[in-house]
Computed example of a mutant assay.
Amino acid sequence: MRTVKIGGVPEHFNLAWYLTLKNGEYKSEGINLRWHDYYGGTGAMCKALRNGDIDMAVILTEGIIKDIIEGNPSKIVQTFVQSPLIWGIHVAHHSNYNEINDLKGTKAAISRYGSGSHLMAYINAENNHWNLDKDLHFEVIKNLNGAVEGLTNGIADYFMWEKFTTKPYVDDEIFRRIDECPTPWPCFVIAVSDNFIAESKNDLDTILRIINNTTAEFKNIPSIDKTIANRYEQKLEDVQEWLSLTEWSQSVLDRNTVAKIQKELFTLNIITKITDYKNLVYTPS
């Protein structure tokens, strides 16, 4: 039985992977799929793909595109979540910052350089017509727990993270959300190392078939809202809102979307060049 290592954030977007693993669906096909939680998010998974620590990752679209352009020997094999990610823009609950323009020129907490929290700070700055050279400053805090400490202690001023994941921290008056910033493209893709594609195409096809069958029917699973609320310690009404906004995908990331993302990242000086679609996306011949 071949062992395949996959990484992702321990969030509700990835519950479908947990369910298929729990049901033994990969083992029944001769695949020992091992899931690894990456609390550091996309930046940590990019590093893990480069190092060969994992074969696959469920990862933010803009982050893996940037890293592949910078030499990560991987490819995007399909879109995983088609809908945008809604990034909440958070400050400490007792902060004096009350609106988005109060944050101009202050320090953003990011999990690491190249992470979603880093890249989306640029998107947010552009949306608000800030000077990207003068108005953006960063403090690396590694993960969500680091952000709690960083904002509470004044090491950083604001933190961008997925709205529903951070909602319990808002409810507990640790964070205060002052605005939102949706990604202007599908938020999560599945990326796979070039070595794994070359050596294990049949296993890859099998894994994608299993997860796609589950995500296609995910919203119809009985009491799935209650399952998510219990597992991720969220309020039922928040989960129901999140489910209404979220759409999974079983399709390859299309050329126009890849071109749009690259154009945006290039405009923001996040990437230094625009590359061909085939260098970023694997499409079966």
Results as ranks from 00 to 15, higher is better:
Ile271Thr: 11
Gln82Ser: 12
Thr166His: 00
Asn153Lys: 15
Leu208Tyr: 04
Leu243Arg: 05
Thr183Glu: 11
Met1Gln: 10
His118Gln: 03
Leu151Tyr: 06
Ser200Asp: 13
Ile110Asp: 04
Pro186Asp: 04
Ile64Glu: 07
Asp133Thr: 07
Ile89Leu: 15
Ala121Gly: 09
Glu247Asn: 13
Ser83Glu: 02
His137Lys: 15
Leu253Lys: 06
Ala216His: 07
Lys219His: 14
Val148Pro: 01
Met45Ala: 06
Ser74Val: 00
Asn220Lys: 15
Asn213Met: 12
Arg177Leu: 10
Thr20Tyr: 05
Lys134Met: 03
Pro182Ser: 03
Asp276Leu: 12
Ile141Asn: 08
Ile65Asn: 07
Arg176Phe: 04
Asn32Tyr: 07
Ile271Val: 14
Gly8Pro: 01
Lys5Cys: 06
Val189Glu: 04
Lys163Cys: 01
Lys235Met: 08
Gln250His: 10
Asn128Leu: 10
Glu264Ala: 09
Leu15Gln: 08
Arg177Glu: 13
Asp67Thr: 05
Leu60Asp: 13
Lys201Asn: 04
Tyr277Asp: 09
Asn23Ile: 00
Leu265Gly: 06
Asn279Tyr: 04
Glu180Phe: 07
Gly154Thr: 03
Ile110Glu: 03
Arg255Gln: 13
Phe266Met: 03
Ile190Ser: 02
Asn127Ile: 01
Gly8His: 09
Asn32Cys: 06
Ile174Pro: 00
Phe138Cys: 08
Thr272Val: 01
Thr42Arg: 02
Thr3Cys: 05
Met45Pro: 10
Gly30Lys: 08
Trp17Gly: 00
Ala48Phe: 05
Asn256Phe: 04
Asp203Pro: 00
Pro73Met: 02
Val239Lys: 10
Ile261Glu: 08
Ala125Ile: 09
Phe80Ala: 12
Leu245Ala: 11
Glu70Ala: 07
Tyr38Trp: 08
Asn213Glu: 15
Tyr113Trp: 08
Glu241Met: 11
Asn195Cys: 05
Glu162Ser: 10
Asp133Ile: 00
Asn279Arg: 12
Asp135Gln: 09
Ser95Asn: 09
Glu62Met: 11
Glu233Arg: 13
Val170Trp: 01
Trp87Lys: 09
Pro222Tyr: 02
Arg50Cys: 04
Ile178Tyr: 04
Ile141Val: 15
Thr283Phe: 03
Glu29Tyr: 07
Ala16Thr: 00
Val258Cys: 12
Asp135Cys: 12
Arg112Met: 10
Gly150Cys: 06
Ser193Gln: 01
Leu33Cys: 00
